[in-house]
């Protein structure tokens, strides 16, 4: 493995871990639920994506042949993150809006 490739993989790993950490800082620090959703959906997803791509490059270089199945995981994460965020915000809105009313409509 060439030294520049190693630098690149290390860079991707550090950036990925950094974004993951930033997403969790946002989760812990922001004051309101709807603001907290922003951290994990965008930042953490990008962080894990970049780390998984680092893993794909690493195993393509050191192992035998290209390692493609990491790409599937990245695509999966990018598809599912907005869906779960959407459901969570919908639930939160439903609970906060329905707390004051007696007749909850579903």
């Amino acid at each position: 493995m060439s030294i520049w490739l190693e630098y690149f993989i290390s860079f991707l790993i550090i950036v990925g871990a950094g974004f993951t950490l930033l997403g969790s800082i946002g989760l812990a620090r922001l004051p309101d639920f709807f603001m907290r959703v922003h951290g994990p959906t965008k930042t953490t997803t990008l962080g894990v994506g970049s780390m998984v791509i680092a893993s794909a490059i690493y195993f393509s270089v050191t192992g035998d042949g290209v390692s493609l199945h990491e790409i599937i995981a990245t695509v999966f994460l990018f598809i599912t993150a907005p869906v779960s965020a959407h459901l969570l915000t919908k639930t939160a809105l439903h609970i906060t809006a329905g707390a004051g009313r007696a007749d909850k409509q579903t």
């Binding site: 990925g16 871990a17 993951t20 997403g23 969790s24 989760l27 639920f33 907290r36 959703v37 951290g39 994990p40 953490t44 997803t45 962080g47 894990v48 780390m51 998984v52 995981a73 994460l77 993150a81 779960s84 969570l88 639930t91």
Partner: peptide, 14 residues
């Protein structure tokens, strides 16, 4: 708590 659990899952993947 559910959002935190979801984030914890993604952190575990990383």
């Amino acid at each position: 708590r559910l959002l935190a659990l979801d984030t914890l899952y993604i952190n575990t993947v990383a």
